[in-house]
Nucleic acid binder design. Structure first.
Lengths: 196, 196, 196, 196
DNA sequence: AATGAATGAGGATTCATTCAT
DNA sequence: TATGAATGAATCCTCATTCAT
């Protein structure tokens, strides 16, 4: 029963993820989410205060999952460059392997939800563990050892996340095909942009 | 008359641009657009088939305007590298100087509208003149002369537009401040990522 | 067309009055009001900000109507006692002649709507013209000339409105029948309660 | 067990009384009642057929309690006038001492619940013991001995309950302050209205 | 040509009641 | 016996679009 309970919540989160990924926030009314999740409409409101909270929780789950996934493969003995390349490659690979998650995240960050979240995190200086945390560490280490260009954190982020997200989107939309080879040279280019 | 007519259409386009930029597609109902434009609701439908077409036309106008602006400053005598740097700098500067236009474009490309438009252009091989045309030329010239990395067009785009859009967004949201200096080193980094 | 416009608003006000009178606030959903008024649901929101404002306006209209009706019959040459008796009789008669209006008013004053309105009026000391204004004048004149008991205004109101509303309600519910005779002795009793 | 059972039922009745008094019928959903009562939602339905029955029973309990309270102070040696004054004073005092009970009763009688109850009692001629029973006795005695005006029972009720309820409400809402003195003159006025 | 009143499908949310445990 | 998760009809309100003037 504890299991079933968790199942329902998970169903709702998954249904939301999928519908938002497929049709955007517009295309994910609560009635449709409930139907896809196989629960009653009212059930959504047992688990989430309102639709906003549901959206936030989907984001939160994805963030944790991605973060965990990336961290799980980090090797301590990697050189700095290797760690950077690993991060970019594995993130890009994850995104194209999980297109629904990517599409949801894209919608999220391009909405008041995501903007406010970023604003809070940037100004509160208290970024809970998110994938950007890993990159933030890379930034700080790189700066400390003089391995990367002398730019602010958010410019560094723009140089890394910007191309990765653009590439992932085009792959998922079927505009390009990112194979291992291409990912390799692409990530190399990212490295060129930040390295000193 | 013809003038007045054009004025009304322009008012509607401008009101739409502003409202979408300020509040997103959600926050720009036709009634509000009409009010801001100083016309009747019905008038919108005299100039545009439906709201979708209105959105498309705003996008089209912006695209032309930006393209024109960038082209207007191109100097033939620039070296390839100079032309690349010029394109990136002037585009980024334009975006942060015109935050409403940027925000509209962001909304647009992160919606079914923009996705379908890109799909059509990529596969129909008939890209109407847009700012990406300029970059496409840069790509082709660079490839021909072996000045840039050996990657597909869309990867090249990802390496250039990706960081620029990310940086512009963070500046407009007030997360960072892009001064001439920073723009300079930022664009330099972009060049590093694509140059051979 | 100005006429038709007014007609629609009036239809909505009337439908609301009737439905609230018949079934209480619970029994007057917007969809039912629209249907009874012969308009679309959305039309309600062209004329009223929300359901609360609609309710308030019905109240306001009734208040003005009743006030006007009572004032229209006031004779200057009446003695104080005659004016008091006139007020009570004509108010009571009006209420039992207009049972829907009475029932609406009862619902209104027994809801947060009415309580807040009374609170505002009592403490802001700025009671816009309402039927209680007439009684307030009667109170002040009576007190000035020592014709009525030495009690606060609201106690005077309780002694007058209290019985009248209770009697009107029982008549309208069919529990008693108030004929001219009975109204006469009833109002006489009210006079006895306030006279010195 | 039997005790615990009674406790649970009492908790539910009390929670209902309080929530309806504080927020009206609207503001007293079963989930909130259960929470306030410290029982499960389903438990409510073990003790009451449905929400209507719960409301009715709260009313019934209050009625009995008030009736009992008033009767407990009745002195046989009182004159008729003294008994009338006692009834009015003690009822009014009880109401302002128990504002939640008063507010519940007000809600109740201004709803289909109360109207139907009164209708049943008036026409079935079988009024279960309620506080109005005491007043009914006073009415009958007064009429028999020619001490009160020659009006029907319900008019007598209107003259007594009407002002008392109005005064209690205004006191509880904080619009006036009823001290012993004021209650005295107020009840005197009520007597004036019914006495021959 | 221009208007804006009218519309009603569609959206988020609530809540009395049931029923499996 | 007691529980509270689950339900979905019902509610208020929005907004793209139409059409009579």
């Amino acid at each position: 029963m504890d299991l079933e309970k968790k199942d329902k919540k998970e169903s709702i989160l998954l249904a939301t993820l999928e519908l938002v990924a497929e049709h955007g926030f517009h295309g994910a009314p609560t009635a449709m989410i409930a139907e896809r999740a196989g629960v009653g409409i009212g059930t959504i409101y047992r688990y989430f205060d309102d639709k906003d909270m549901l959206i936030y929780e989907v984001h939160r789950e994805l963030e944790l999952k991605i973060c965990e996934y990336i961290l799980s493969g980090f090797q301590e003995e990697y050189s700095y460059r290797q760690r950077f390349v690993y991060f970019c490659s594995v993130l890009l690979q994850y995104l194209i392997d999980n297109p629904k998650e990517f599409k949801f995240m894209e919608q999220f960050y391009n909405s008041p939800y995501g903007v406010e979240l970023r604003r809070d995190r940037i100004f509160s200086e208290a970024p809970e563990c998110e994938n950007s945390c890993i990159l933030k560490d890379l930034f700080e280490q790189g700066r400390k050892h003089g391995l990367i260009k002398d730019v602010p954190l958010l410019i560094f982020f723009a140089l890394v996340f910007g191309p990765i997200i653009a590439a992932a989107r085009d792959h998922i939309l079927g505009f390009i095909t990112l194979d291992d080879n291409l990912i390799g040279s692409f990530v190399e280019a990212c490295w060129d942009s930040v390295k000193k």
